[in-house]
């Protein structure tokens, strides 16, 4: 069982708002690993499986988020979710 932690800068112009948060949770649910997220400036970790918890991070463009994955597919999970966080704009 491996745990992985990596930081990403939120790139979307509108920040991590409801729609990308929904996509994040959907994507997180496809991995076996336990996913948690926190702001770099705050030690509070929230579940990557709850849209409302993700939204409570209030991550705007430029916010640095820490992503933690614990489980057999931690590496793939961090890569895929990190890619989503760093998308330059909100998805259509």
């Amino acid at each position: 069982m491996s745990a992985l932690e990596e930081s990403f800068i939120v790139q979307g112009e509108l920040g991590l708002h409801a729609r990308p948060a929904g996509r994040f949770v959907n994507l997180a649910g496809r991995f076996e690993s336990e996913i948690s997220v926190s702001r770099e400036d705050n030690e509070e970790w929230v579940s990557g499986r709850s849209v409302l918890s993700i939204l409570s991070l209030a991550a705007s463009q430029g916010t640095i988020l820490k992503l933690r994955a614990e489980g057999p597919d931690a590496e793939e999970a961090v890569r895929a979710l990190g890619t989503l966080l760093t998308e330059p704009r909100a998805p259509a």
Partner: peptide
């Protein structure tokens, strides 16, 4: 609004 956030 729900469909927008969670299409599935």
């Amino acid at each position: 609004a729900l469909q927008l956030i969670l299409p599935e």
